[in-house]
Design a binder for these strands. Structure first.
Length: 419
RNA sequence: GGAGAGAUGGCUGAGCGGUUGAAAGCACCGGUCUUGAAAACCGGCAAAGGGGCAACUCUUUCCUGGGUUCGAAUCCCAGUCUCUCCGCCA
């Protein structure tokens, strides 16, 4: 979210910067409301001062007047509340402004490749998709999940379930012991306010699973990513400069409605309502965001390098970035069955955008209280990594070789095969 | 589910109708002392919003929302959350 104070300073520049995003914001209304709002605040404050002064004199003859003022204040204050709510509504629906590094573009076709790594496997047999491999092994069961739950869920069984767990532990260990992140095991439900903090609400409510609770209690949502709950660790806080940067990592299930992607990736476990993901979150001094983004992205690619999976690193264009991001790298892994790269991680700097929403601040060297910078990145999406391992390490007989680094996490199993 | 206790600044914690934005301590920052550090002593130290080029100034804020009052951190009502004890379940 943007600070109205900052926008006011240079309204034109703000408007221009947002054009890259192709969002329709009623700037005229924003400007008018801002002026009205401030006028009302001034009126209100003048009256409040008058009332306060009377109270200080303790002069009984003025008490009647004070009472009148109170009525007036209430009237103005109500108007002001309405206007400031309108303002907040407009402001909270404005996305972050893309950093100047970000290429202009409409959609994913305009993303720019910045790096490519690893060797694409060449099979001397007809390769299979992960769901063919998994179903043949009897270790992926989509039909069963449909029966028990519904579409876009899956049962993972046997050695593949072990592989999934191994991936989680391997990634966590790498980020904890090598990359300096603190492990967190967070709640999987988030309050409305928490969801607002990272930008999932109010604009993207239809993508979230909400838990049905008794009437009158606070709303709660299943987290669509651990980013939500990890970033909000610093909500409403003024952090000691010395404790920055904060780096958190968690492996959690994620829940997404995937509204608007009907008919997309319906086969297999590419796009599920529930999936595991290892998520990294960094809280940094605001001017260190971009450096941290490079660092974090390297932590993500580190995993793919260790697993020896081929991938490429993309910088997202302005039109393809998430609501809260100022700059995003996507890491895409090679999937033989689709003969293309698919997203396996997304690392974003959100500058102070989320921090403003969360009221997360720190005192800088000059003792000014300012908003922190927040970053988040997958390191990595476990479900998709599982797919990538299956497809890239598949053998002619339908078995799957386990990447060396994962074997210690799997009782030194070298290969997953029938029986 | 039953019975109590509580929610105050970065933290701990006093205040329980009128200069209280809020004692004290810790933390932090500056200074004196010291070869340096520690200790000791002195001083500083809330946030949000409005106005002003600025120095500065005004308003709001003691969980949230109502109420009483000329005036509320302090009194009343409702709600949320936390803690303790008992029960129940993992």
């Amino acid at each position: 979210m943007y600070n109205l104070k900052e926008i006011r300073k240079n309204f034109g520049a703000f408007k221009k910067a947002l054009e890259k995003r192709a969002v329709d914001v009623d700037f005229k209304k924003l400007e008018t409301l801002d002026v009205e709002n401030r006028e009302l605040i001034q009126k209100k404050e003048a009256l409040e001062k008058e009332k306060k002064d009377i109270s200080k004199t303790k002069d009984k003859s003025l008490f009647v007047k004070s009472k009148e003022i109170s009525v007036n204040i209430e009237k103005i204050s109500n108007q002001q509340t309405i206007i400031s709510e309108k303002l907040k509504k407009i402001l909270s629906n404005i996305p972050n402004i893309p950093h100047t590094d970000v290429p202009n573009g409409r959609d994913e076709n305009d993303n720019v490749e910045v790096k490519k790594s690893g060797n694409i496997p060449k099979f001397d047999f007809k390769s299979k998709s992960h769901y063919e491999l998994g179903e043949n092994l009897g270790m992926l069961d989509f039909d069963l999940a449909t029966k028990t739950t519904g579409s876009r869920f899956v049962f993972v069984k046997g050695a593949l379930a072990l592989l999934e767990r191994a991936l989680s532990n391997f990634m966590l260990d790498t980020h904890i012991y090598k990359n300096g992140y603190q492990e967190v095991s967070p709640p999987l439900l988030a309050s409305e306010n928490t969801m607002f903090g990272t930008g999932q609400l109010p604009k993207f409510e239809k993508d979230q699973f909400e838990i049905k609770l008794e009437e009158g209690t606070d709303r709660k949502f299943l987290i669509p990513t651990a980013e939500v709950i990890l970033t909000n660790i610093v909500k409403d806080k003024i952090i000691d400069l010395k404790s920055l940067p904060l780096r958190f990592v968690a492996s959690t299930p994620c829940f997404r409605k995937e509204a608007g992607s009907y008919g997309k990736d319906t086969k297999g476990m590419i796009r599920q309502h529930q999936f595991y993901k290892v998520e990294m979150v960094s809280i940094v001094e605001q001017e260190k965001c971009l450096d941290e983004l490079e660092r974090m992205t390297n932590c993500a690619t580190d995993i793919l390098d260790l697993l020896e999976l081929p991938y490429r690193k993309m910088i997202l264009c302005s039109g393809d970035m998430g609501f809260s991001a100022e700059k995003t790298y996507d890491i895409e892994v090679w999937l033989p069955s689709e003969n293309k790269y698919r997203e396996i991680s997304s690392c974003s700097s959100c500058s102070t955008f989320q921090a403003v929403r969360m009221k997360a601040r720190y005192k800088n060297i000059n003792k000014e209280t300012i908003n922190v910078g927040t970053l988040n990145g997958s390191g990595l999406a476990i479900g998709r990594t599982l797919i990538a391992v299956m497809e890239n390490y598949q053998q002619k007989d339908g078995s799957i070789v386990i990447p060396e680094k994962l074997r210690p996490y799997m009782n030194n199993l070298e290969k997953i095969s029938l029986k």
